[in-house]
Amino acid sequence: MSDTPSTPTTPSAFAAAVESVRRAVARDDLAVSEIPAPGGLAPHALALAGDVVGASGRADPDLGTGRFVLLHDESAPEAWGGVFRVVCFAQAPLEADLALDPFVADVAWSWLVDSLAAGGASHHSASGTATKVLSTGYGDLAEQGEGAQLELRASWTPTSTDLAPHLEAWSELICTLAGLPPTVEGVTLLASRRVGRD
């Protein structure tokens, strides 16, 4: 008997899902890279980070940023309702006057739902939160003035191993939050946004 612990094999369903994520086509406005997956959430996981690309051609998380995590557990946790779960995060600056709009959180959630539907990302059990953050600088930070951010955290259960549409919907979500024109039909932009890509 060997003293080295056995390496768990990657389930074929997870391998297929990872392959589909890696061949997904994110928007050109978003720089996507693979990052270490968080531990302890599931036996198998894949994580990606995305940052909006500024006018300089470089990724700038201050313009918009997000995370996409694919979880896989063959035991199909009851809360998931399946063997996969996608957990995502998206955040972008928002004009302070828009942050006061009582419906802006509803709009952010609709951008995610519409992007998933438009891309054919079949799923169920979606849940999440949309958060508006208002800030005002004081003292040494007074020059920052007032600012606002819109943040969306969401999760859902994919119904197939084809995760490319899910990643593409997340890509669309971040860019739409950042004020970039949507490429998905049926998704509309808020009337006034500060994109900051000039």
Rank of each mutant, 00 (worst) to 15 (best):
T136N: 13
R153D: 09
D73K: 10
V25A: 14
P102N: 08
R23Y: 02
W156N: 00
P11N: 00
A45L: 04
D3M: 12
L94R: 02
S110T: 14
A142Y: 04
S115R: 02
D3G: 15
R22D: 07
V184Q: 08
D198Y: 03
S115T: 03
E78M: 04
P43L: 10
G82T: 12
A90E: 05
W80F: 13
L48W: 09
D62L: 11
D198G: 15
G120W: 06
L180V: 03
E34Y: 06
A117Y: 05
P5D: 11
T4E: 10
A37K: 08
A164L: 06
V53C: 00
A15C: 08
P8V: 13
V187K: 06
F103H: 11
D51P: 01
A76V: 08
V195C: 07
A92K: 02
W156Y: 13
G128K: 02
V83C: 04
A79S: 14
P77E: 12
A130V: 10
S155P: 02
T65M: 11
G139T: 04
A118E: 14
T129Q: 12
L180Y: 01
S110F: 12
W111N: 06
R194M: 02
G139C: 07
P77Q: 09
L150T: 00
G82K: 05
P165T: 09
W109R: 14
D140F: 06
A45V: 08
E151V: 15
L46C: 04
H166M: 05
A164M: 02
Y138V: 13
V87M: 12
V133M: 10
F89K: 00
F84P: 11
G82N: 09
D97Q: 13
A37I: 13
S6P: 01
V87G: 06
A126Q: 10
G54R: 03
G147E: 02
K132C: 05
S171T: 00
G82L: 11
A105K: 10
D73F: 12
V83T: 15
L134M: 14
T4Q: 11
A164P: 00
P182F: 07
W111T: 05
F84Q: 07
S160Q: 07
P158W: 05
E168R: 06
M1L: 13
D51R: 02
R58W: 06
D198L: 07
A37F: 07
L70W: 01
V18K: 06
F103Y: 07
P38Y: 07
L70F: 02
V18P: 02
D106W: 03
P36K: 13
A13T: 15
G179D: 07
I174T: 10
A24H: 01
H166R: 08
R194A: 09
G179L: 03
S125T: 15
D198N: 07
F103S: 10
H124N: 11
A26W: 04
L112E: 04
F89S: 09
A148Y: 01
D114S: 15
F14D: 09
A42F: 09
A90S: 15
G119V: 01
S110A: 14
L190G: 06
L180G: 01
A47G: 05
E146V: 10
F68D: 04
A105Q: 14
H44S: 07
E95P: 01
T10P: 03
A121N: 05
D114F: 11
H72I: 01
L116V: 03
